[in-house]
Design a protein around this nucleic acid. Structure first.
Lengths: 258, 258
DNA sequence: CGACTAGTTGAGGCCAGTCAATGTTGGTGG
DNA sequence: CCACCAACATTGACTGGCCTCAACTAGTCG
């Protein structure tokens, strides 16, 4: 019944050894069942057996150093990557050199989805801090998912959530003012930290002003000015990358949330 | 091995009868194998048997009248929709009433992917002209895909392509000037018409200036002025919605393509 | 024919970008 | 440990691209 093979069906072994800044953690036994991100990640809702099988699918866990690249455009698609600990940015490059950050990703999130379409990644993923990654070879993940509806659902969910995120970014970039963009960004970060058990009102940014600006379609000076402006109004406290949201309700109101 | 059921696993029957402006074409026998869009759509690369099975998955083909809604935010996710003939726009609505068009979709393209994540659609899909749609009940599509790797690949491809499209829109909205945005838009339309066997230099827009503007994060006056401006420069000819690209190479150069 | 929608064009204003100077922070090596 | 340097961040002055508001035209439909 099947016809031509799927593009990722080649062996998932890496052709070349990983570069030094992406070190394997193969020796360390880490399991989904004991991972702090399991409630946000691929194993959500899997029973013990399925989770065991997922552990076996994960070919490798790697550490990506700050500023190092996990994958880059053109590299052939073999795997999805789940973030265990740390933060990544993904970005696309235009022919003329302009670049746009398409997302900041934290623990439990899955990146590399852009590679499933054309056989190779279209984005570049770069660590914003030392980051630990679970490598999910796609061929094996796909095969396991055949027998595990919940895993299949999670795969679909991850893909579709990414689409929804991107849609809301299009709304942000297409119709919102600079201030609204920054406030949305901060509230979104806060919510994501909260889901991970951290404070939703106090956190340290992992990215530079320039990276925030790129993500929000602004210039770094504008982001800097907005931080100062919001601080003057008593809505938040900024000290370099340390952010304290002093009045979340007012911030939410400012962007028409609730 | 499976645990909780996937959210779309309820019966795919519609609870209520379809509204009048979305009429069923159940009686008309249409098959993927004879569909003009098959090379761009879900059946790409399927063998005859798989294509037959896909035909059986398609519960229904419907006609959506111009300006009618195919699905709307909050409506529970049951199916993906493949466009057989016609054009749709998808848009998201902000709480404050602002809206952003997230895509224009033509024959062979699949919409509704945003609904897979949360159990209900987050976008609204509206026909820009009378449009014929193949309804792909997701539960059945998913089941068929278990046995058909090529179909599974197509499903992944459609999802991932959407993500890539959205990324390029984020680059467009975040880093490009109004003129670049419009030129990109026109060149993209041209390429898509060409793939469907139509002229890539002469076509009729299905959308208003305001819809183009929304998609590109601009105002309709700006779009109108840009059309006039590009026409003055001899790059294209505009007569209402009829567009003729007079110098595609120059247009491509203007946005740094090749 | 009038009402309505879609599109064009002009005048003026403002938000965010650009350019530039200065301050701050953190990593590195002496 | 501390000095140094480069990367990061802040702030100001000015500019300009796109938005806003408004008038007008063209086409459509009852």
């Amino acid at each position: 019944m099947a016809t031509r093979p799927a593009p990722w069906s080649e062996d998932e072994q890496l052709a070349a050894p990983a570069p030094l800044h992406v070190a394997s953690l193969r020796d360390r036994p880490i399991q989904c069942a004991s991972c702090g991100s399991r409630e946000l990640c691929m194993p959500v809702g899997l029973d013990a057996e399925a989770m065991d099988n997922l552990d076996r699918v994960i070919s490798n866990r790697v550490r990506v150093q700050k500023r190092a690249t996990l994958y880059r455009p053109g590299e052939s698609f073999r795997a999805l990557y789940a973030i265990r600990i740390g933060t990544l940015k993904t970005l696309i490059l235009a022919e003329d050199g302009r670049e746009q950050i398409t997302g900041f990703h934290m623990s439990g999130e899955v990146v590399g989805l852009d590679g499933m379409a054309g056989g190779s990644y279209t984005c570049q993923a770069i660590a914003l801090e030392d980051t630990e990654i679970c490598v999910l070879p796609f061929k094996r993940l796909d095969e396991l998912a055949l027998g595990v509806p919940a895993l299949r659902g999670n795969l679909y969910r991850v893909l579709s959530s990414d689409i929804c995120h991107d849609h809301s970014m299009m709304l942000l970039l297409g119709s919102r003012s600079a201030e609204e963009r920054l406030v949305f960004f901060l509230l979104n970060l806060a919510a994501r930290y909260q889901r991970r058990g951290y404070s939703s009102s106090e956190f340290v940014l992992r990215m530079t002003r320039e990276e925030i600006a790129s993500y929000l379609g602004l210039k770094l000076e504008t982001v800097s000015r907005l931080f100062s402006h919001l601080q003057e109004q008593g809505l938040l406290q900024v000290q370099g990358r340390a952010i304290k949201l002093l009045d979340s309700p007012a911030l939410k109101q400012r962007v028409g949330q609730h």
